[in-house]
Design a protein around this nucleic acid. Structure first.
Lengths: 344, 344
DNA sequence: GCCCGGTACGTAAGCGCTTACGTAAGCGCT
DNA sequence: AGCGCTTACGTAAGCGCTTACGTACCGGGC
């Protein structure tokens, strides 16, 4: 008998179908050992009753955990919100729930969030955002994730390669290379980099691509100005001030992500420096507003939403012998923020 | 005895403390009926063991549900991602987990997500984004939420008032009024509105504010051009095309949110229409990129992140006799996209 | 001295589900 | 007919926790 005002339970479904709890459970789980007619009848009745399994009971009883934990640095950063959108989309299609956490770019806090998710017994953990250069923290995260996987959890990372788990990896080095090459093709020789914190692996990788391109064309790394700061709009502003003051000969600024590029453009505008006539600017990521900045931003396109989907797809597959890696590819999108180097 | 490689259970804590399961549970829940010394000892041991309650078992047994479901239209829309950031922040402070769902601006799909969250037995539901003008769907959502609350769930809405639940309500009408007044102060008399879908209550409310301001100053509503479209960047682009083609006398465009305003600016730029010299543009919401568009956008500031926090705060309080309402206030932020009406 | 009430704890019954194991029926085979 | 094997289902034991109820003990009032 259905209890008034309560959600139907599996027993109700089973009773209505005239079968036992076990059979009903098996039928709804799509497990074998139930004849087709009976299974169909059970499913039909479940649907009629609006039955939805209680995930707490299901998980407690040892069934599949159906929630995925997503760790981002900051949801209101478009880089992460676009990734999150991809994850949430695919999760909804698969009937999974997404629990989202912010780490605030703090490795220690991130570790705490990670432990919290594991304690909450999520089935899948997706961890996005640059890794940290601090071997201690990375090692702890690695160990925690390894243990989690040994107990049947699944993990995928987005944009970090040092965790020993499946990963979706943007082509950071190649992208950095393409940006620098593009600027040099335009005649720029005095290039400055607005880089994020030195402790982020993403920063290091992108920077490596830039310096490689310079070296390839005969410039010495010493010719490159690199200013580190926050990997955010504010960091871009600060870096630009410093570049303008200390390296006035600069004709092009490479911001290592679009958030910083936004700050760079903002400062140049308020300083009335014409872009790209006097200084060219490039970003990295191609978040969706990049095309709407003024001038619209030349940048490296990463398929952010797709990256989110891919990461979840990896995590839904059974664990492989060795961590899988998916490169994202990269695409230089040339817009209005870059132009020929000014002829002195 | 601790089972190898498993997370500690409450029994382990209880055994180590030499007490029964019940006492351990009471102590950790901070319930009374346990002497201070014993409770302290239990808590200390739990901490030493790294014990974290299994939320599935806890919820199944009838304890407090500790997860909050957040429904947004689209996470990668800054309006929602900034709200989400506020919710996630506060949730983390409170030790709650946030499950996030996208409705994709589809009322039917939204209803499905809502039912899904309820079926998942979340404890709190936060539902953000404009309401729909479709009384059938709203009524169903209302009924679903009422039943959910009757079973002890808590609900708060952000930006919708027809759900019969606690709500954080942006000052849509007053904001619309302020925008129109600002433009008229600048001498504009040929104003067009790039409005979102007519079926969204937010659109209707903001539009009402605009027309009220016009009427107040002696313009007839017929003098106002209103073009409906998607409540997105693309919708803003389309609306602008139509306005330029069919109402060339227009000197100011009111976009009813910043996403549309972005599209408006984008189209005006590609059409080489000087802003604000020839046409002024205003938006609504003040998402964080609004200041970085070119020209920077005059808009109505809503405390988005704060709104997310406030909504969760409301939901954490016990239900009141009548739904509570919190107005957000509004602030006209004048930037570079508005200027005096051109002297013909 | 006894009874009463309160406090501090233990006992055990679930919460709704999954699944190992048991069982009965049906089949083909010798 | 009897055997074993498979298939289709039922039985019941938990998963880890909360909580209603029971019990032991202590102090105070008459």
């Amino acid at each position: 008998m259905p209890r008034a005002g309560q959600r139907p339970r599996l027993v109700e479904v089973a009773e209505r179908a005239g079968v036992s709890l076990a059979t009903a459970s098996r039928a709804l789980a799509g497990r074998e050992g139930v004849s087709t007619e009976v299974a169909d009848r059970i499913r039909r009745i479940a649907h009629e009753l609006g039955y939805v399994a209680n995930p707490y009971a299901r998980t407690l009883a040892g069934g599949a955990r159906s929630t995925v934990g997503l760790i981002v640095h900051q949801v209101d950063d478009p880089y992460f919100s676009e990734i999150a959108a991809g994850v949430i989309q695919l999760a909804a299609e698969q009937g999974l729930l997404v629990q989202i956490c912010q780490s605030g770019r703090d490795p220690v806090y991130e570790l705490r969030q990670l432990r919290h998710l594991i304690a909450q017994r999520v089935g899948i953990i997706l961890i996005s955002g640059s890794g940290y250069d601090d071997p201690r923290v990375e090692a702890e995260a690695r160990a925690e994730l390894a243990a989690f996987q040994d107990h049947g959890g699944r993990v995928a990372a987005i944009g970090r390669h040092a965790l020993g788990v499946d990963a979706v990896l943007p082509d950071n080095e190649a992208g950095g290379h393409a940006l620098a090459a593009h600027l040099m093709d335009l005649g720029h020789r005095h290039i400055a980099v607005a880089a994020g914190s030195a402790g982020l692996t993403t920063v290091a990788d992108r920077l490596a691509g830039v310096t490689a391109a310079l070296r390839q064309r005969g410039l010495r790394p010493a010719d490159l100005t690199v200013v580190h700061g926050d990997f955010t709009r504010g960091g871009g502003r600060a870096a630009t001030e410093q570049i303008l003051n200390e390296h006035p000969e600069t004709t092009a600024i490479v911001a290592l992500n679009d958030a910083m590029a936004t700050g760079v453009l903002s400062t140049l505008r308020s300083r009335r420096v014409p872009v790209p006539a006097r200084i060219s600017v490039v970003g990295f990521d191609d978040v969706s507003v990049a095309a709407d900045l003024a001038p619209s931003l030349t940048t490296i396109r990463l398929p952010l939403t797709e990256m989110g989907r891919t990461a979840l797809t990896l995590a839904l597959k059974p664990r492989a012998a060795r961590p899988r890696r998916r490169a994202t590819g990269h695409l230089l999108v040339v817009r209005d923020s870059t132009g020929p180097a000014p002829t002195t």
